[in-house]
Design a binder for these strands. Structure first.
Lengths: 149, 149
DNA sequence: CTTTTTAGTTAAGCAGGCTTAACTTTATGC
DNA sequence: GCATAAAGTTAAGCCTGCTTAACTAAAAAG
């Protein structure tokens, strides 16, 4: 018997410890790159979605088009992204990660994963399969939620 | 048989989807409060640790003592924290959340938990206990790691 | 008891993000 | 085709965070 309360409790405990830890390593890495958080967030967003235009940025980050334009300009200057004209709509610009940008994002991910890998090394042999199973279930559920919204 | 690769894979998939989602709700909430990210981070840190002094802030957030002092000043002005003299060392100041500050942090946590609760509602009855078990194991492992560092 | 360290504050100045306002250029509606 | 809307850009100005530098006050060291 798993009470609903127990389930929520364990999820929340995990969430607290996980968030606290990963946020720290996250900000720490962002700082070490010399990029600001907003700039860094755009790179991550590009990593997830592949490419998008200015308007998507202003929408996602809830800033004006002007702000989005200025932020991306700095990333272009830094050589992290490149702006290309959308062939279908010549007003629109499609932005993408450059190799340099990809490299930086990869490095950030690796940093983030390190703690996870340490965590794994603490698990007993019998716990490991259980954890794998549970995380797959959770990831699957999360993806379902994502699609709906 | 759970291969090490499989374990890492499932952890990383979960981490990606989880981070992406919770970072968004996190920043969104911070923005809605009108506080800046650094200010908000200080409140969260206070929530975790209870109370601490200026020097801890500059250390944790890797900023100068001057910056820490100015940031906390704004939070005091806003009524989110209060500064008290440390009776043992009258140079030091101990800062704490006010009721207003606590309220705000609680609201942020609730926001963060909401997605988790939705996630739970997607799980089948047979999956739930497995998830609880796995998360407890992970949380326990995380706490062990935390102590060492 | 004097010197030095430590904790924190204040002020000046710089850099970044963001907004509004005034544009340019391309697409759409009628 | 012409007016209107949409996608971006640019510039001016504000606010915030951050740093350095100069300071006050209390503790520790000698």
């Amino acid at each position: 018997m798993t009470s609903p309360l127990q389930l929520k409790q364990s999820l929340r405990s995990w969430m607290d410890v996980f968030m606290h830890r990963s946020m720290r390593s996250w900000m720490h890495f962002a700082k070490s790159t010399g990029l600001s958080m907003p700039q860094f967030s755009i790179l991550m967003q590009l990593h997830h979605k592949g490419s998008f235009g200015m308007s998507q940025i202003s929408e996602k980050f809830d800033i004006t088009a002007a702000a989005a334009s200025q932020l991306t300009e700095k990333l272009v200057q830094g050589g992290y992204i490149e702006r290309a004209e959308d062939p279908n709509d010549r007003r629109a610009k499609s932005i993408q990660l450059t190799p340099k940008g990809k490299e930086l994002v990869e490095a950030g991910m690796t940093e983030r994963y390190r703690w996870m890998d340490e965590l794994v090394s603490k698990l007993s042999a019998e716990d490991k399969p259980k954890v794998v199973e549970a995380l797959k279930v959770l990831t699957e559920a999360a993806k379902q939620l994502e699609e709906k919204s």
